[in-house]
Write a protein that binds this DNA or RNA. Structure first.
Lengths: 120, 120
DNA sequence: CTGGTCACTTCTCAAAAGTAAGTCGCTTTG
DNA sequence: CAAAGCGACTTACTTTTGAGAAGTGACCAG
């Protein structure tokens, strides 16, 4: 378990290169423009296209369509077509996405303690 | 503690609007291009400009300079000038930044279980 | 005095995101 | 039955952001 690499890095470094790389890949997902707001919108009950648009304030139609497609491809959102008249389309978070969001909860606490109340 | 707002949202929604907003502000910081890699570089022992450049693979000089400045302004990085000859400049993570990074650790685990091993 | 390092800054150009409008199938309104 | 509207997008165009190369200035080694 203890490789020679670990012995070389400073003892106060909390992450080795591989661990760090994994974190970056997760940040890559949630940090891509609008995916944070979209996933959170899903967690807050959004299901249809326009519900996401309403819960992710400021997003444009093209971006929402694009990100939903990408999140679908990544397995974080599932797209369901309901063949009613008119046809309805439902976007739901997968368990993976919900787990990811739950991991982000501690950030709210940090944010509250560290960030200035509101200044924009 | 329980406001009337909380009673109105669906029981499966894990976050209310304010909570959600705080998370988004934290994501905004770590999701801004290169700040993730830079903070992680700092956590891994980087101190000088070129050390960050080496530990954040692919970053350009202008972006590194810009992000270091922004992180400094946000209180996540501290810039120290050591008046030796030649002058040395040291960038260290503040306790706030280290705490933030520690909150991101669980993402590595999620990443490992969810993301495909390596495909880029 | 030529060349090299460190910590940047300035430039140019391509990629990404924003804005506005249009499309397709279907439904409601007059 | 024509006109207008809705939901879920797509297309075309403009603006913003970021990447890449190169330059700057202070210092030092040969």
């Amino acid at each position: 378990m203890t490789s020679s690499r670990e012995a070389l890095r400073p003892p106060d470094a909390p992450v080795d290169e591989e661990h760090c790389h994994r974190i970056l890949r997760a940040i890559d997902i949630i940090g891509t423009r609008w995916t944070g707001p979209i996933l959170l919108a899903g967690a807050r009950g959004a299901r249809r296209f326009k519900e996401y648009r309403a819960l992710a304030p400021g997003i444009s139609d093209p971006q929402l369509a694009l990100r939903l497609k990408q999140l679908q491809a990544r397995g974080l959102i599932e797209r369901t077509v309901i063949p009613s008249t008119p046809v309805q389309i439902k976007y739901t978070l997968t368990p993976d996405a919900e787990e990811l969001i739950s991991l982000l909860q501690p950030l709210a606490h940090w944010s509250e303690r560290h960030l200035p109340p509101e200044d924009s």
